[in-house]
Nucleic acid binder design. Structure first.
Length: 482
DNA sequence: TTTTGAGTTGTTCGA
DNA sequence: GTCGAACAACTCAAA
């Protein structure tokens, strides 16, 4: 019986994996392979936090495969050459994979397909990582959607996503395994120890993803609409890294959430709808990336190419290193650095702060997130930053500038989040926690805090920065100073 | 083709 | 302290 290869990419799971099932359905032995090919990722090879995740994700995938009597073959090098060589070595006659939507990944898959077809192989590409195929989701003019609400309405009017398929029970192994690198040989882990916080926070892998989904549905879904805005709580699913790496498929999430609301009150159904809408944003982000592949680097709205950014590199560094003097911003940046993840509400606040208060180009923020997030996903990252900067699809009105103090009071009213990540000001009373500079000298002294020594003074004044941002937008639109 | 309605997540000001 | 209105007009989607 001929061997089939499953080429794992952003789908590091055994359940609901159409490419894996296709390989199994060939009836012969299956060779699972991952090829580490950062040079084929164009401008966006995985960042440091992503590499950490990938290391443990591959270890978990290998362990899961072994339970089915199989194993993971690891290779490195340019993708096309690597796969062509492996096909020959493994005497394979078919190769299967699931589609990826990043421009560089689309190109590589095309090259792989051409090369393999030339060798007379059977190849199959599947769609397992989105609910709706962005290439067929089009408006009545036959073009891509650029506003979320009509996009999502259109998706919801389409046939419901298929039910997820279970993992295969067993994988038959080839008579002889092709050679494989050891996982350590990929050198994905950092050489200096900075990832301990990430390791304390996350366990990459399919099992962990499915547990996280279950916990979310049981504990947080029924209160999602308010819980999701409280960064100190686990009010969100925190499935972003799992979806990014494909430890879980959006179809599994969709149907598990839907199933859980059966025989529940309409209120809970409403909460579930709100959560699924967030999956819709992930779909929308991929839809935009497919149709506007230049957007990771360039604004979707061309006018913004001439935005008068004039932020300094010192301000960028202060933001990166959580020394802005705005507690909510600094808390978020420390959560990111420590855990490789940041709560979505806080992502918006820190992004708005970098782009609007500091006038640093959104691309700088996107790059930093890319390097530090374990869920670094090109589609989501691009959409999020462009949305915050006001240059993307469904852009926020330009005058919408988050006030980090008000956002702190509103979404971290008890200060649990700021106190956790900015312990040096934890002693301050709630009313001063989000604006320590407004506290009386005696209050600060009582907590042994001197601004500028124990915690940063604000690097910009909110009101001034706001006016400056509004003026910059005015200039962009060709209007004289107010 | 033209027109109409609507658009994730906010802040500030003044009554 | 609370509440509603203004912010400023633009783009997209659909009728």
């Amino acid at each position: 019986m001929a061997n089939s290869i499953i080429w794992f990419r952003h789908d590091l799971r055994l359940a609901d994996n159409p490419a894996l099932l296709a390989a199994v359905e060939q009836g012969g032995p299956v060779v699972p392979v991952y090829t580490w090919s950062p040079e084929d990722e164009g401008e966006w090879p995985p960042g440091a936090a992503s590499r950490w995740w990938l290391h443990y994700a591959l270890a978990a995938l290998d362990a899961d495969l072994r339970k089915l009597g199989s194993r993971l073959i690891i290779r490195t090098g340019r993708t096309v050459e690597t796969l062509v060589a492996l096909v020959r070595e493994a005497k394979a006659t078919a190769v299967f994979w699931n589609h990826r939507y990043e421009p560089a990944a689309v190109q590589i898959a095309k090259d792989v397909e051409n090369a393999l077809r030339r060798q007379g192989l059977c190849v199959g590409e599947f769609h397992g990582n989105l609910l709706f195929d962005p290439r067929v989701t089009l408006n009545r003019q036959g073009g891509p959607f650029q506003v979320f609400t009509p996009y999502w309405k259109h998706c919801l009017s389409a046939p419901e996503p298929e039910l997820p398929k279970p993992a295969p029970g067993r994988l038959s192994r080839p008579r002889q395994w092709p050679s494989s690198l050891s996982l350590d040989a990929l050198r994905l882990l950092p050489t200096i120890k900075w990832a301990e916080g990430i390791a304390e926070t996350w366990v990459p892998g399919e099992r962990s993803a499915s547990d996280r989904l279950t916990r979310f549905i049981e504990k947080a879904l029924s209160d999602y609409s308010t819980g999701r805005d409280r960064p100190e709580k686990t009010g969100t699913s925190r499935l972003s890294p799992d979806l990014r790496w494909g430890h879980i498929s959006p179809r599994q999430v969709w149907h598990a959430v839907k199933r859980s609301t059966r025989r529940q009150s309409p209120r809970v159904a409403k909460q579930a709808e709100g959560y699924l809408r967030q999956l819709g944003w992930r779909e929308f982000a991929h839809h935009l990336l497919v149709h506007f592949p230049h957007t990771p680097e360039e604004p979707l709205r061309p006018m913004f190419a001439r935005f008068p950014w004039n932020g300094s590199s010192e301000h960028l560094r202060a933001w990166q290193h959580a020394r802005t003097g705005y507690p909510l911003v600094d808390a978020g940046m420390r959560e990111l650095w420590h855990t490789g993840w940041m709560h979505n509400r806080v992502r918006m606040v820190v992004a708005s702060f970098l782009v609007k208060h500091l006038l640093v180009p959104w691309q700088e923020g996107a790059r930093w997130f890319w390097d530090t997030l374990v869920d670094g996903d090109l589609a989501n990252n691009t959409l999020g930053w462009q949305w915050c900067a006001g240059c993307g699809a469904d852009a926020a009105p330009y005058f919408r500038i988050f006030n980090p103090v008000l956002q702190g009071r509103k979404f971290d009213p008890d200060g649990g989040y700021v106190r956790r990540w900015v312990p040096e000001i934890a002693g301050l009373a709630d009313k001063h926690l989000h604006e320590p500079w407004a506290a009386k000298a005696t209050d600060l002294a009582e907590c042994c805090i001197r601004l500028g020594r124990d915690y940063a003074e604000p690097i910009v004044d909110h009101a001034e920065a706001r006016t400056r941002a509004l003026k910059a937008y005015d200039r962009l639109r060709g209007r004289p100073d107010r």
